[in-house]
């Protein structure tokens, strides 16, 4: 964002989640945003049918982190043919939980006066990274030692031309916090923490070598199934 824009986590561009040809003329594109702890689904609804659309409502299937609408879908006026409206749906994390495959999958039902339509979309796990995710240094050291090596996953983040301070600042904007930095043999080692809305802590070490655009990310977590999704967020944020 530019000067004066509210800060928040990385927001992906909207993509088409429901194609008009599969939904009797209703096209839905969307993305997810976290701004100051408020989670939202940002939607664009387009009427590509010949008649007016009314009576919109939305429902989520149960999902891995209990994501659910915190209010109704506010489409206050009928949607005319060829009209698009943007709607922000506030979300809460207090819905029913069921582990999804992939973990960040969300199944959505949208209805209007014509029919009910279903689609799936995936949210970036960074939607769940809370603002108080900076772990105490002492706790980090103890936890890092305590989590078994089998729970460590390693990833390559390729083609990133940022030094460690810039990378660290960028990540902090998405609630990935740097706790310590050490330089060993020309490599900057960043120790970082992330806390998910459900209380899961993720610990990370990012190695940045001067002149090498490929960084090594090691992730330790007691729930190792989240690691690859945290890695995806690093890539998205650092490449944005």
């Amino acid at each position: 964002g530019g000067v004066g824009m509210p800060t928040g986590s990385y927001v992906a561009p909207k993509t088409v989640w429901l194609a008009a040809m599969k939904a009797k003329g209703l096209e839905i594109s969307g993305t997810f945003a976290r701004r100051g702890g408020i989670i939202q689904m940002d939607l664009s609804l387009t009427n590509k049918a010949m008649s007016v659309m009314t009576d919109f409502a939305i429902q989520f299937n149960r999902n891995s982190f209990g994501l659910s609408p915190a209010g109704p879908l506010q489409v206050l006026t009928p949607l005319s043919p060829n009209q698009t409206i943007d709607v922000s749906l506030p979300l809460s994390m207090s819905g029913p939980i069921m582990k999804m495959e992939p973990l960040n999958n969300l199944q959505v039902a949208v209805k209007n006066n014509i029919d009910v339509f279903y689609f799936s979309c995936q949210y970036p796990l960074s939607l769940l990274f809370v603002e108080d995710g900076k772990m105490e240094r002492q706790v980090f050291l103890a936890t890092w030692k305590d989590i078994p090596n089998d729970n460590e996953a390693q990833f390559q983040i390729k083609d990133i031309h940022l030094n460690s301070d810039v990378a660290s600042n960028k990540l902090q904007g998405s609630n990935i916090f740097t706790i310590a930095k050490r330089t060993v043999e020309g490599q900057d080692m960043l120790y970082q923490s992330v806390k998910l809305t459900n209380g899961i802590w993720v610990l990370a070490e990012m190695r940045i070598q001067t002149g090498n655009p490929n960084h090594t990310l090691s992730i330790k977590c007691r729930a190792p199934e989240v690691s690859q999704f945290v890695f995806q967020c690093y890539e998205l944020v650092l490449k944005s």
Binding site: R137, Q138, L141, W144, A180, R182, V184, E185, Q187, M189, Y191, E205, S218
Partner: peptide
Amino acid sequence: EMDDGLEEAFSRLAESRTNP
């Protein structure tokens, strides 16, 4: 002093990760 200990512990962690 306690913080010095933490600083040192992070240095040891980084060293051990670079030269296991």
